[in-house]
Simulated assay, not measured.
Amino acid sequence: MSQKIKAPNSKAGSGFLWIIVAILAIAAVVVFLVVRNNTGGNQLAAEMPQEDVNFTVEREGNSVVLASQDLKADAPVVEIFEDFSCPHCAGLAEADHEDSLQALNEGKVKIKFNFLNFLDGEATGSSTRGAAVALAVAETGNAKAFWNAHTAFLTNQTEVARKWDYEEFGQALQAYDLDQSVIDSISKGEVQDAVLPVVKANADDLTEREGSVSSPLVYADGKRVELKKGSDNKVQSWVPDVVK
Score class of each variant (00 low, 15 high):
K108M: 13
D184E: 12
E168N: 12
E190D: 13
K223S: 14
V195R: 07
P216C: 07
G107F: 12
W147H: 03
A138P: 14
Q171P: 04
T128Q: 09
Q157K: 02
W164E: 06
V218P: 11
Y166D: 07
N114P: 14
E168V: 00
E106N: 05
S126H: 05
L196T: 15
Y166K: 07
T155S: 04
A145M: 06
A143F: 01
R209L: 09
L206P: 15
D193V: 14
Y176H: 01
E159P: 02
A201Q: 14
V218T: 02
N117E: 03
V133H: 11
D165C: 02
F115I: 05
E190T: 00
E139H: 10
A134D: 05
G121R: 06
E208G: 15
L178P: 09
V160A: 09
N114G: 10
Q102G: 13
V198H: 09
N114S: 13
S181M: 04
V198G: 08
K200Q: 12
L104W: 03
D177P: 09
G125N: 01
P197W: 09
V218K: 02
E167A: 15
A138N: 10
A161H: 01
A175S: 11
A123N: 13
F118P: 02
G107R: 01
D204A: 15
G121S: 09
N117F: 03
I186M: 03
A136H: 04
H150Y: 12
I186F: 01
L135Q: 11
A203Y: 09
E159A: 06
K144G: 11
A149E: 12
N105G: 15
V160P: 12
L154M: 15
K110V: 07
V191I: 06
D221T: 08
K163I: 02
A136K: 04
N202E: 12
A194I: 09
E167L: 13
K110P: 01
Y219W: 09
K188V: 06
R209A: 02
A175E: 05
Q174Y: 10
R129I: 01
K144A: 09
L206Q: 14
L154T: 09
E210F: 13
N117M: 04
G189L: 08
A194N: 10
H150T: 07
T124R: 09
